[in-house]
Structure formats: structure tokens, C-alpha cells
Design a protein around this nucleic acid. Structure first.
Length: 445
RNA sequence: GGCCCCAUCGUCUAACGGUUAGGACGUCGGGUUUUCAUCCCGAAAAUUUCUGGGUUCGAAUCCCAGUGGGGUCACCA
């Protein structure tokens, strides 16, 4: 049978890194077997829905090259859920309830599993599941590869259809996954506790239960589930910070999944090719920024200069205003020494901004170094890298300057920083005039 | 608190019941280099696989308990 998976996000805010990972896994699981991957928008909570939420989801999937065969929107399928819910009532597996909706509990936890309207035989209101007493319900988790069981006595009379006519997740997933012929359900671990509800609904509706697997949660280094509070975990945020989609993808698929040979580098296509559900981890992984940085560096260095140049242009307007040749030259210098695209803002700033030079950074003989440099540079007729190099070296030789000290003073005077791209290449790009101007400015102050 | 899941270097992880428990990131040291970075080489790092029992000739691998971590208990998903 053909594998069909789905990614079922809610348009309730910016997409989280964990959600994206679920999409990658579901996509790879299907595509590895030439199956279908479908996108389903779960917009059944109108209160929490955000504007452009759906567009944002599609946009992000597009950035990561994830394509779907079919698209469904739950709010357009309300009849289906209503029919299913009413069927459950008619068959005695669900009941109407007119109680006031419970708010999300602020503190503590509710102990009432059974709803007071259970046996009132009402004919309108919300529809809730008539959970049976003391039955064992079991399924084999596709990710965990083990049986998990519950006694229905600890399962609540969950709401299936809300009074506004919208289904809750519990009803909608079951109806949709069945209707859309989903063969494998991959979802967050937080869904595990409500799985018995779904299992009951499957059973009462007479549907075949698909493979269901619960993925690990990505943890925060500080402890607890990764949250927006602690650092940037939204996909947008990471993208804006200067992480490449390829790096984010590669990093995130390896949090919670690993191949037998521990290979580290994967493109989307390669991940699909080598994907094996046996590689799913059971323990929660920790989000490790250093490793993401490493992946990003790898992908930045592998990027064609033309593409990297474009990324810099998008990241920094000032950079984009530079002459084309200068942009390319700077790109080459930056390529090997940045971790994030946004690093261009700091490390290359001196190219379009005269730096504020802190004299503390200079060595003892900096005045002599810089004054000599001005003299020598003025003599250079053809401002090219060979001349800059030989004239400088010759100067150090002649005046017995310590090379490292001389170049460091030059570096600080030109850039205002101690860690910079190669200084000769930098002043070549800056030009003779600007270089001289910066040097004399420092010497005069 | 009830229920459910999980447990190998700091982190991500590999290891037919039989390995000196392997790799990657990070860290440290060295080489290249006019800084930083890249690149190359090397090392430390798991008090031997959370603890305690058991099964077995033999356990990181199987079983049980404890401890620890995580999730969840809404007309939210």
C-alpha cells in the first residue's frame, strides 16, 4: 500500500523549529517510498488563528523546498465532522453537553473525567465522547516501536464538536486522516496522552487505525521544552538571524533521527534517499546552537560566491550599495570566516563606515608604524595586492618593524578591530585614497 | 498528584548479548597564517553505558524496582 503522510499545522503563529522538523520527517517517510505528502491546515480554533498564518506556513515550506501533493483546509470541511459527530451520538458513543465550557486551568489539574451531561439525553450543545469504563486500549507506536496502553478509566469525555460547529483536534484528525487515506501519522510527543481518545473515535467510527508515531520534543539547553522565550526557535527568527535553510534543515533532522553510519551532511534529496524510520530516537534531544553554527559555516563555505553575495545584499543594504566588484571581493574574504549571514553586519562594517578607533587597541609604536605606512603607500602608483604587499614588507625590513605589530596597527587604524579579514586585501578594496585618509585621520588625532 | 514516554562523553549520537564503547559538534594542544577564520594533525572527555537488583558462561544491550528528565490532564492545537 502506498505511504501517505501529512503535515498538519495550525495557522496560530510563526512556525516553530519542532513543527518544521515534523514536516521533514513526514515528507521523507512518504517520499522515500514514492508516496504522497499532503498539507492540511488545521484552522479549527478561530480565536487563536493569526492573519496570514496559512501563507506563512506555505511560504516557509517553500523556502525548504517541501512540496505537497494535496492541500486541505479543515474549516472548509465542517460538514464532514458534524456528520461524524452526530453518527457517534446516534450510535451511543457520544452525547450532547450544555455545560459552560471549561477554561484552560490556570493552576492544578482537573480530576473530573466524566461529564455531568453524560446521561442527560440532551439534543443540542457540544458533542463529547462517551468514554467507556475500565477497558484497555492499546496501540503500537511507530516511532517508539513498542506497545502503549491505557485503561479507559483514566481517559476523559473529550469534546469532539464545539458549540460553534467546529470540531476539536480529537475529532478532526481522526475523520481527516481516515478520509485522506493517511497511512502514517507522525506528530509531537505532546499528543501521546490524547491518543487513547483518538483510538476510541477510530473504533466507534469503524475506521482503520493508521500507523501513529510520536516524535521526541526538542529541549532547551536550560531544561524544559524548547520555547520562544529562550532564544530564537521560530523558523523565521533563525532565517532572519542569518542561518541558511540548508543548514537549519540538516541540523534539525539530526535532532531526533540518526542513520546507522552517523553520516552528518544531508541535502533534502539525500535525506529522502537514506531515510529509515528505525533511525528515530526515543529520548528528547537538546537544541545545540554550536552545532547549528557549524552546519551553517559548512553550507556557507559551500555556497557559490554569487549566491553568497546575494545573501549579503539582502542582509545589509549598505553592502548592496557597494560597487559590484567590491561586493564580490568582500564576499570572498568573508566566506571562510563567518558563521551566519548576518555576521556581515559587523565584520565587514568598516568597508562602508569609517570606524571609531580605540587607541587602547594599538601597540606602543603605532604612530611610527602608521606614519611610515602613509609615506610608503603614497608612493604606490598601481594600487594592487602585489604592490601593497611588497611595499609593506619592504618597509618593515628597512625600519626593522616587527611585522605582526606593524600589520596589527595598520589593521586597527583601518578597521577599528583586531579580528578582521586579511588587511592587505581589505585596503585594496577600500582604495588608496580612503586608506590614506583613514591613516592620517588616526595619526592626527 | 493521576496517567504516559524516555535515560551511552558537556551536546547530537553509533555499537547481531561477546568492541580497547566508535563518530560528529564543542573544548584543549600543535602545524599553516601579518590578526581572525579556513584547512591539516593530535589529545582530553562516557569514574564502562543514571542507581540497585535479577536472567545469562557473558549485559550498554533482556526483565524488575528506584531515581532523574520530559509530556499531558481546555468547547487549544
Amino acid at each position: 500500500m502506498k505511504i501517505r503522510t501529512r503535515f498538519a499545522p495550525s495557522p496560530t503563529g510563526s512556525m516553530h523549529i519542532g513543527n518544521l522538523r515534523t514536516a521533514f520527517y513526514a515528507y521523507a517517510l512518504a517520499k522515500h517510498d514514492k508516496g504522497d505528502f499532503v498539507l492540511r491546515i488545521e484552522d479549527t480554533d478561530k480565536k487563536r488563528e493569526v492573519e496570514d498564518g496559512v501563507e506563512d506556513i506555505k511560504d516557509i515550506l517553500g523556502i525548504f523546498n517541501i512540496k505537497w501533493e494535496e492541500l486541505y483546509v479543515q474549516s472548509e470541511r465542517l460538514d464532514l465532522y458534524k456528520i461524524a459527530a452526530e453518527k457517534l451520538v446516534n450510535d451511543g458513543y457520544a452525547f450532547y453537553c450544555e455545560c459552560e465550557a471549561k477554561n484552560a486551568k490556570k493552576e492544578g489539574f482537573s480530576l473530573e473525567l466524566r461529564d455531568p451531561c453524560r446521561d442527560k439525553k440532551l439534543t443540542s450543545g457540544a458533542i463529547k465522547l462517551r468514554t467507556p469504563e475500565n477497558e484497555w486500549i492499546t496501540f503500537t507506536d511507530y516511532v517508539l516501536q513498542k506497545k502503549v496502553s491505557w485503561n479507559t478509566s483514566v481517559v476523559s469525555d473529550a469534546t469532539l464538536l464545539k458549540t460553534d460547529g467546529f470540531p476539536t483536534y480529537h475529532l478532526a484528525v481522526v475523520v481527516d486522516d481516515n478520509d485522506m487515506n493517511i497511512s502514517h501519522v507522525l506528530r509531537g510527543h505532546d499528543w501521546m496522552p490524547s491518543t487513547p481518545i483518538h483510538l476510541l473515535v477510530y473504533k466507534y467510527l469503524g475506521f482503520k487505525v493508521p500507523e501513529i508515531g510520536h516524535l521526541t520534543d526538542i529541549m532547551d539547553p536550560e531544561g524544559g521544552k524548547l520555547s520562544k522565550r529562550k532564544g530564537s526557535t521560530s523558523v523565521r527568527g533563525l532565517l532572519e538571524e542569518g542561518y541558511l535553510p540548508e543548514a537549519i534543515f540538516n541540523f534539525v533532522i539530526l535532532l531526533g533521527w540518526a542513520p546507522k553510519d552517523n553520516r552528518e551532511l544531508y541535502t533534502l534529496e539525500e535525506f529522502v534517499e537514506f531515510f529509515d524510520p528505525k533511525g528515530f530516537q526515543k529520548g528528547n534531544p537538546v537544541f545545540n546552537r554550536e552545532k547549528l553554527d557549524w552546519f551553517n559555516g559548512e553550507y556557507i563555505r559551500n555556497l557559490p560566491e554569487k549566491d553568497l553575495n546575494l545573501k549579503f545584499q539582502m542582509a545589509n543594504a549598505k553592502f548592496g550599495e557597494l560597487e559590484k566588484e567590491k561586493q564580490i571581493a568582500i564576499t570572498k574574504l568573508l566566506k571562510e570566516r563567518i558563521k551566519k549571514i548576518s555576521d556581515v553586519n559587523d565584520i565587514a562594517k568598516f568597508f562602508w563606515e569609517t570606524p571609531v578607533v580605540d587607541k587602547e587597541l594599538f601597540g606602543e609604536n603605532y604612530k611610527e608604524h602608521l606614519e611610515s605606512a602613509i609615506e610608503v603607500f603614497e608612493e604606490i602608483k598601481d594600487w594592487n595586492i602585489e604592490n601593497i604587499g611588497t611595499f609593506s614588507l619592504e618597509l618593515c625590513e628597512r625600519k626593522k618593524f616587527h611585522r605582526g605589530d606593524f600589520f596589527m596597527d595598520l589593521r586597527v587604524a583601518i578597521t577599528g578591530m583586531k579580528f578582521t579579514p586579511p588587511i592587505n586585501d581589505s585596503i585594496l578594496i577600500l582604495g588608496k585614497e580612503e586608506t590614506l585618509a583613514r591613516l592620517s585621520r588616526v595619526v592626527k588625532n
